[in-house]
Amino acid sequence: MLKNLKLAAVLTIFCLISAGALAYVYNLTRPMIAANSALSFKRSMGEVISADSFTPGSQGCYLARKGKETVGYVFPVNPAGYGGAIEMMVSLDKGGKVIAVKIISNKETPGLGTNILNPKFLKQFSGKSVGDKIKAKEDIDAVTGATISSNGVCKGVRQALELFGKVKP
Protein backbone atom coordinates (compact mmCIF):
# COMPACT_ATOMS: atom_id res chain seq x y z
CA MET A 1 0.00 0.00 0.00
CA LEU A 2 2.68 2.43 1.10
CA LYS A 3 4.76 1.41 -1.89
CA ASN A 4 1.96 2.20 -4.32
CA LEU A 5 1.52 5.61 -2.73
CA LYS A 6 5.18 6.28 -3.25
CA LEU A 7 4.92 5.37 -6.92
CA ALA A 8 1.95 7.69 -7.33
CA ALA A 9 3.83 10.47 -5.56
CA VAL A 10 6.88 10.11 -7.84
CA LEU A 11 4.69 10.15 -10.95
CA THR A 12 2.81 13.21 -9.70
CA ILE A 13 6.04 15.09 -9.08
CA PHE A 14 7.21 14.36 -12.64
CA CYS A 15 3.88 15.51 -14.07
CA LEU A 16 4.04 18.73 -12.04
CA ILE A 17 7.55 19.55 -13.26
CA SER A 18 6.49 18.80 -16.84
CA ALA A 19 3.39 20.99 -16.56
CA GLY A 20 5.43 23.83 -15.12
CA ALA A 21 8.01 23.66 -17.92
CA LEU A 22 5.29 23.57 -20.57
CA ALA A 23 3.42 26.52 -19.06
CA TYR A 24 6.65 28.51 -19.14
CA VAL A 25 7.46 27.72 -22.79
CA TYR A 26 3.82 28.26 -23.79
CA ASN A 27 3.79 31.76 -22.32
CA LEU A 28 7.12 32.52 -23.91
CA THR A 29 6.10 31.49 -27.44
CA ARG A 30 2.41 32.44 -27.42
CA PRO A 31 2.79 36.05 -28.59
CA MET A 32 4.97 34.98 -31.52
CA ILE A 33 2.63 32.17 -32.54
CA ALA A 34 -0.32 34.58 -32.46
CA ALA A 35 1.61 37.14 -34.52
CA ASN A 36 2.56 34.46 -37.06
CA SER A 37 -0.99 33.29 -37.56
CA ALA A 38 -2.25 36.89 -37.84
CA LEU A 39 0.42 37.58 -40.45
CA SER A 40 -0.39 34.52 -42.53
CA PHE A 41 -4.11 35.36 -42.25
CA LYS A 42 -3.43 38.81 -43.64
CA ARG A 43 -1.20 37.43 -46.37
CA SER A 44 -3.93 34.99 -47.41
CA MET A 45 -6.41 37.86 -47.65
CA GLY A 46 -3.94 39.70 -49.87
CA GLU A 47 -3.96 36.68 -52.19
CA VAL A 48 -7.72 36.73 -52.81
CA ILE A 49 -8.07 40.47 -53.34
CA SER A 50 -5.64 43.29 -53.98
CA ALA A 51 -5.96 45.99 -51.33
CA ASP A 52 -3.82 48.16 -49.08
CA SER A 53 -5.43 47.30 -45.79
CA PHE A 54 -8.14 45.18 -44.22
CA THR A 55 -10.53 46.22 -41.48
CA PRO A 56 -12.91 43.89 -39.68
CA GLY A 57 -16.56 44.40 -40.60
CA SER A 58 -19.87 42.83 -39.56
CA GLN A 59 -20.81 39.16 -40.10
CA GLY A 60 -17.17 38.16 -39.60
CA CYS A 61 -16.10 39.74 -42.89
CA TYR A 62 -13.12 41.95 -43.62
CA LEU A 63 -13.40 45.12 -45.68
CA ALA A 64 -10.64 45.38 -48.25
CA ARG A 65 -9.61 49.01 -48.64
CA LYS A 66 -7.54 50.94 -51.11
CA GLY A 67 -6.87 54.25 -49.42
CA LYS A 68 -10.22 55.11 -47.83
CA GLU A 69 -12.35 53.40 -50.42
CA THR A 70 -13.78 49.93 -49.85
CA VAL A 71 -12.99 47.82 -52.90
CA GLY A 72 -14.36 44.49 -51.74
CA TYR A 73 -15.02 42.01 -48.96
CA VAL A 74 -13.25 38.93 -47.67
CA PHE A 75 -15.26 36.23 -45.87
CA PRO A 76 -13.42 33.53 -43.94
CA VAL A 77 -15.74 30.47 -43.94
CA ASN A 78 -15.32 26.91 -42.64
CA PRO A 79 -17.75 24.58 -44.42
CA ALA A 80 -17.73 20.84 -43.69
CA GLY A 81 -15.79 18.73 -46.18
CA TYR A 82 -15.21 14.98 -46.28
CA GLY A 83 -12.57 14.78 -43.57
CA GLY A 84 -13.47 17.79 -41.44
CA ALA A 85 -13.87 21.52 -41.80
CA ILE A 86 -12.41 23.17 -44.90
CA GLU A 87 -10.92 26.47 -43.86
CA MET A 88 -11.27 28.89 -46.77
CA MET A 89 -11.51 32.52 -47.82
CA VAL A 90 -13.89 34.00 -50.36
CA SER A 91 -13.39 37.50 -51.72
CA LEU A 92 -16.30 39.45 -53.23
CA ASP A 93 -16.33 42.72 -55.13
CA LYS A 94 -18.61 45.58 -54.15
CA GLY A 95 -21.40 44.21 -56.34
CA GLY A 96 -21.33 40.84 -54.56
CA LYS A 97 -19.56 38.86 -57.29
CA VAL A 98 -16.96 36.31 -56.28
CA ILE A 99 -13.43 37.43 -57.12
CA ALA A 100 -11.41 34.48 -55.85
CA VAL A 101 -11.54 31.51 -53.51
CA LYS A 102 -8.58 30.28 -51.47
CA ILE A 103 -8.36 27.12 -49.38
CA ILE A 104 -6.34 27.82 -46.23
CA SER A 105 -6.36 24.33 -44.76
CA ASN A 106 -8.24 21.09 -45.31
CA LYS A 107 -8.35 17.54 -44.01
CA GLU A 108 -9.56 15.94 -47.24
CA THR A 109 -8.26 12.65 -48.65
CA PRO A 110 -4.74 13.18 -50.03
CA GLY A 111 -4.66 12.69 -53.79
CA LEU A 112 -8.44 12.94 -54.22
CA GLY A 113 -10.14 15.54 -52.02
CA THR A 114 -6.99 17.64 -51.79
CA ASN A 115 -7.39 18.37 -55.50
CA ILE A 116 -9.89 21.06 -54.45
CA LEU A 117 -6.70 23.15 -54.20
CA ASN A 118 -6.38 22.92 -57.99
CA PRO A 119 -6.66 26.46 -59.45
CA LYS A 120 -8.72 25.07 -62.34
CA PHE A 121 -11.42 23.99 -59.90
CA LEU A 122 -11.30 27.15 -57.80
CA LYS A 123 -11.41 29.48 -60.81
CA GLN A 124 -14.91 28.25 -61.64
CA PHE A 125 -16.29 30.28 -58.75
CA SER A 126 -15.03 33.62 -60.02
CA GLY A 127 -17.87 35.83 -61.19
CA LYS A 128 -20.60 33.84 -59.39
CA SER A 129 -23.11 35.79 -57.34
CA VAL A 130 -26.00 35.09 -55.01
CA GLY A 131 -28.36 34.30 -57.89
CA ASP A 132 -26.24 31.36 -59.11
CA LYS A 133 -26.84 27.78 -58.05
CA ILE A 134 -23.19 27.00 -57.15
CA LYS A 135 -23.65 23.25 -56.85
CA ALA A 136 -21.14 20.56 -57.78
CA LYS A 137 -22.11 18.63 -60.93
CA GLU A 138 -24.56 21.39 -61.90
CA ASP A 139 -22.86 24.69 -62.65
CA ILE A 140 -19.54 23.66 -61.07
CA ASP A 141 -17.42 20.76 -62.34
CA ALA A 142 -16.67 18.59 -59.31
CA VAL A 143 -13.17 17.30 -58.61
CA THR A 144 -12.93 13.70 -59.87
CA GLY A 145 -13.62 11.22 -57.08
CA ALA A 146 -14.28 13.93 -54.54
CA THR A 147 -17.88 15.09 -54.83
CA ILE A 148 -18.28 15.64 -51.10
CA SER A 149 -15.16 17.79 -50.91
CA SER A 150 -16.31 19.77 -53.97
CA ASN A 151 -19.75 20.25 -52.39
CA GLY A 152 -18.02 21.52 -49.26
CA VAL A 153 -16.26 24.26 -51.20
CA CYS A 154 -19.52 25.16 -53.00
CA LYS A 155 -21.27 25.40 -49.65
CA GLY A 156 -18.52 27.71 -48.38
CA VAL A 157 -18.96 30.05 -51.34
CA ARG A 158 -22.75 30.08 -50.85
CA GLN A 159 -22.25 30.87 -47.15
CA ALA A 160 -20.04 33.80 -48.06
CA LEU A 161 -22.64 35.12 -50.51
CA GLU A 162 -25.41 34.79 -47.90
CA LEU A 163 -23.32 36.62 -45.34
CA PHE A 164 -22.70 39.34 -47.90
CA GLY A 165 -26.47 39.80 -48.23
CA LYS A 166 -26.63 40.46 -44.49
CA VAL A 167 -23.76 42.92 -44.54
CA LYS A 168 -25.41 45.02 -47.24
CA PRO A 169 -29.18 44.95 -46.83
Binding site: S18, A21, L22, V25, Y26, T29, I33, N36
Partner: peptide, 14 residues
Amino acid sequence: STFVTIIDYVMQAY
Protein backbone atom coordinates in the same frame (compact mmCIF):
# COMPACT_ATOMS: atom_id res chain seq x y z
CA SER B 1 6.19 14.34 -24.56
CA THR B 2 7.28 17.41 -22.60
CA PHE B 3 10.22 17.94 -24.95
CA VAL B 4 8.08 17.24 -28.00
CA THR B 5 5.51 19.84 -26.93
CA ILE B 6 8.29 22.34 -26.30
CA ILE B 7 9.78 21.85 -29.77
CA ASP B 8 6.26 22.02 -31.23
CA TYR B 9 5.68 25.46 -29.67
CA VAL B 10 9.15 26.70 -30.59
CA MET B 11 8.77 25.66 -34.22
CA GLN B 12 5.33 27.26 -34.43
CA ALA B 13 6.88 30.47 -33.16
CA TYR B 14 10.13 30.57 -35.12
